[in-house]
Amino acid sequence: MNTFFIYALTGGLLSSLGLLGFILHRHLLRRLMAFNLMGSGCFLILTGLSQSHQGVDAVPQALVLTGIVVAVSATALALVLIRRWYHLTGQTSLPEDVQSLEKTSSKEAQG
């Protein structure tokens, strides 16, 4: 049990919290923030866990840097899409059921 392991543990906790938020919330912005929390947790695990073996390892830090860039671009894309979605529909969440529309229309066709 050393400092690095505590980082990894914190990362695990953050990821679980993020996952919980991602599943429980319907508001698109909240889900996006939950995703970012989960991402940060992942990065902490990635750096924390691998340091505990052989002192300071630079590779995971380089990996995390790449991961952060990816997460930032994903967040930017999501924000653009969410904004456009809000402008078009006035809603802050996606409809609950993907198939609700199609089911009713197929019933009409069969009946």
Binding site: A8, S15, C42, I45, L46, L49, S50, S52, H53, V59, P60, L63, G67
Partner: peptide, 9 residues
Amino acid sequence: LLGVALIYS
């Protein structure tokens, strides 16, 4: 990515 972290560690 979590899986990758575990494999690397």
